[in-house]
Computed example of a mutant assay.
Amino acid sequence: MAVAKENIERAEKPLESKDEVVIHAKGIKKSFGEKEVLKNITFDLKRGENMVVLGRSGQGKSVTIQCVVGMLKPDGGELMVFDDEVAEMSDEELKQLRIKIGFLFQSGALYDSMTVRENLEFPLTRVLKLKDQAEIDKKVEEVLDNVGLLDAIDKLPSDLSGGMRKRVGLARTLIVNPEIMLYDEPTTGLDPITSREISELILHMQKKYKTSSIIITHDLECARITADRIMVMNDGEFIAEGSWAALQKSENELVRSFFNKTT
């Protein structure tokens, strides 16, 4: 995989040309006023891969995936999703792109006044325009069963624990069968046991739905469980990439300080 900065630490060999790339970012920059949040972000996400972006809070991780779905427009660089330049897309093209990209927010972003069933029906009727209630019911029940929450189908979000709300949020995102999943701090606010369960569920869903995913986190255990490859971000730049095992042996003091916390 090509990276913009020549001195980025690669703990393993780059992607081979035969790997199909679904997101290609090169030299992405983004500032808010005088603050430069993204300085030179370059990466490729290949089909079927879980790529974790690991770093402390405030380093530009969430801004990166907001650029991917067109919520934010980069100030410079190239950002291609499914071979199309995101910055050049019309509103309608962005709408169609977002159907293919699932975005799991930190909060889960459920509608509080709707039951779990109604929350999951919403994207089926509003996004996919399904009208057959039997088909809708089947999809809702299937995806809830996949996240282990079929019994909660008629409960309100207020009746659920934090971990259960995360599961419902994941189910609602997956119900439209996205090709790419973007996870923004999926384990934030959860206890260690629930965090591990959510991380293992992300891995299970990747295999079941064959999604390509970017997982934004500063949770080291989440990164260890879910990642095929890890990109370490610091101060708006990637400073290292590789597997968990390889990055544990990094000679970069900052990278090593991350991984030594778990040893």
Rank of each mutant, 00 (worst) to 15 (best):
K5W: 15
E6L: 09
E6G: 06
E6C: 08
I8C: 00
A11G: 13
A11R: 01
K13M: 13
L15G: 09
E16M: 13
V21C: 04
V21R: 05
V22G: 01
V22S: 02
V22M: 03
I23M: 06
H24T: 07
G27W: 00
K29I: 14
K30F: 06
L38I: 04
K39R: 11
K39T: 09
T42Q: 10
T42E: 04
T42S: 12
F43P: 01
D44K: 00
D44S: 01
L45E: 04
E49K: 04
N50D: 08
L54N: 06
G58W: 00
Q59A: 15
Q59C: 15
G60Q: 12
V63T: 14
T64F: 02
Q66D: 10
V68P: 03
G70R: 11
L72S: 03
M80F: 11
M80T: 09
F82A: 04
D83F: 09
E88V: 05
M89G: 05
S90I: 05
S90Q: 04
E92D: 12
K95C: 15
L97G: 02
R98I: 08
K100I: 12
Y111N: 13
S113Q: 13
N119E: 05
N119T: 13
E121K: 14
E121T: 12
L124T: 11
K129R: 08
D132P: 08
A134M: 14
V140L: 06
G148R: 07
L150F: 11
A152S: 15
A152L: 11
P157H: 02
D159K: 15
D159N: 15
S161L: 01
G162E: 07
M164P: 07
M164W: 12
M164H: 05
M164S: 07
R165C: 10
K166W: 13
L170T: 01
T173S: 14
N177I: 06
N177H: 10
N177R: 13
Y183P: 06
D184Q: 00
D184H: 09
D184G: 05
E185M: 02
P186V: 05
L190F: 05
I193F: 13
S195T: 01
S195A: 04
S195D: 02
L201G: 02
I202Y: 00
I202V: 07
Q206P: 02
Q206Y: 08
Q206E: 03
S212A: 07
S213Q: 12
I214G: 05
I214P: 06
I215N: 05
I215K: 04
I216E: 07
L220H: 08
R224F: 12
T226Y: 11
A227K: 03
D228T: 09
I230A: 09
I230Y: 03
V232W: 09
M233Q: 05
M233W: 08
E237I: 08
A246K: 10
A246I: 09
S250I: 00
S250F: 02
E253V: 13
V255S: 04
V255E: 07
T262L: 10
